[in-house]
């Protein structure tokens, strides 16, 4: 069937079975390969995308469930002009990216958090990113990145690079 939904702000339609996995719809159907598959079982968070603003594992989500809904992937985070989102900037500035495979999922989980809470505490960051595994960084710099991003995104903050 034809799956119609909003992806990164645009109306899109993809031919897919309703029980196809959303990760395949995005990667194969739309060639949005920034969404990564680390386990295919909802255990690593590499495939995290935002569904109506909430983080979900695209490897467990079925295509039928996204009809008429709003999906945001890592490709939809930066500005149209190529300017990076403050979370993306913060991940680079703090050294929260090593191999980069967990990074799209991490950034989307962080975005869902910061869209909801302006200035989260460490415990809230931990909670929001608990489902995103990273084998490279040790996570310390990931926490730093999310906190730094929250400061930059706070109303009235200077959004430029640090």
């Amino acid at each position: 069937m034809v799956i119609r939904f909003t992806c990164n702000g645009r109306a899109v339609q993809v031919e897919a079975e309703p029980e196809a996995r959303v990760i395949d719809v995005l990667r194969d159907g739309l060639r949005l390969t920034g969404t990564k598959e680390g386990c295919g079982r909802g255990e690593c968070g590499a495939c995290t995308v935002l569904l109506d603003g909430k983080p979900v594992n695209a490897c467990l989500l079925l295509a039928g469930k996204i009809v008429d809904r709003d999906v945001v992937t890592i490709e939809g985070i930066a500005g149209e002009d190529g300017s990076l989102h403050p979370i993306q900037e913060a991940f680079l500035d703090t050294g929260a990216v090593q191999c980069g495979f967990c990074t799209p999922g991490m950034i989307l989980s962080a975005k869902a958090l910061l869209d909801e809470i302006d200035t989260p505490g460490v415990a809230e960051v931990e909670e929001a990113l608990a489902g995103n595994l990273c084998r490279c960084t040790g996570y310390g710099k990931v926490v730093d990145a999310v906190l730094a991003a929250s400061r930059r995104m706070a109303p009235g903050a200077d959004r430029g690079g640090e």
Binding site: T33, G34, I74, E75, I77, L84, F91, L92, T103, P104
Partner: peptide
Amino acid sequence: GREMVTGE
């Protein structure tokens, strides 16, 4: 790093 935070 840039291409890694954009999904490229």
